[in-house]
Design a protein around this nucleic acid. Structure first.
Lengths: 115, 115
DNA sequence: CAGCATCCAGCGCGATACTG
DNA sequence: CAGTATCGCGCTGGATGCTG
């Protein structure tokens, strides 16, 4: 462990949306485009599309197209994508305790101001 | 675990440098400003300063100033900052296997082109 | 030594409109 | 339904120069 290579993992998870997409996808096994869009408040089609393409290019998600009218596309997390779970999970639980901590701090500061 | 809160952890680790700073700091226990700068190739003073300030504001690193000439400032990871280790570690080891995977893939593609 | 101030480029990301 | 195309803003991050 000479230099830090965590960049690679970061590259894949960073970008305001990718981890949310993975979060939703890993809950549902299989999801359609608009289903994902509805599940992630605030995301635009553009962002959803581009982020999904990036994740796809890293073999994190799989894209299955049904050639039919109306179109139907299903997204799912690959088994390789599942290997990211520990990271996502670690970040998630850490965030929760961090948020608690922030709240306590704010409360303390409010008290300090009051006195 | 209703919605995804991993943003918080991401916010703290993201930004091209923060995780590298933490990586170096956690190796050395205590480091001075220029020591850190030398340890992280390519970083500018501006970036190092601003990232350190952000980490400090989240209680991830501690800043100890010695009022003397020449100035001396020591940075170290707080015990709270240490709680990020599992995440960094997970990202690091994942990245290594991912890099291996990418290399294999490239090799395969090269072979495919050749044939 | 350990910064802060300023200026500037790139692109991440959003809003909007159009398509098979 | 599941996209693509275009436009543009803002913020992140880089280069340079100054200071206690």
């Amino acid at each position: 462990m000479e230099t830090c290579k965590a960049d690679t993992a970061l590259d894949i998870l960073v970008g305001k949306w990718k981890h949310k997409i993975l979060f939703e996808l890993s809950k549902h096994e299989v999801m359609r485009f608009n289903e994902l869009k509805r599940a992630i408040p605030g995301i635009t089609q553009k962002m959803l599309t581009s982020q999904l393409r990036e994740l796809e290019s890293h073999d994190i998600v799989q894209r299955k197209v049904y050639s039919q009218i109306p179109p139907k596309v299903e997204y799912s997390v690959t088994t390789y994508g599942r290997t990211l779970d520990p990271i996502l999970h670690a970040m998630h639980s850490w965030s929760e305790t961090h948020i608690d901590r922030m709240n306590e701090k704010e409360a303390d500061e409010a008290k300090a101001v009051q006195s």
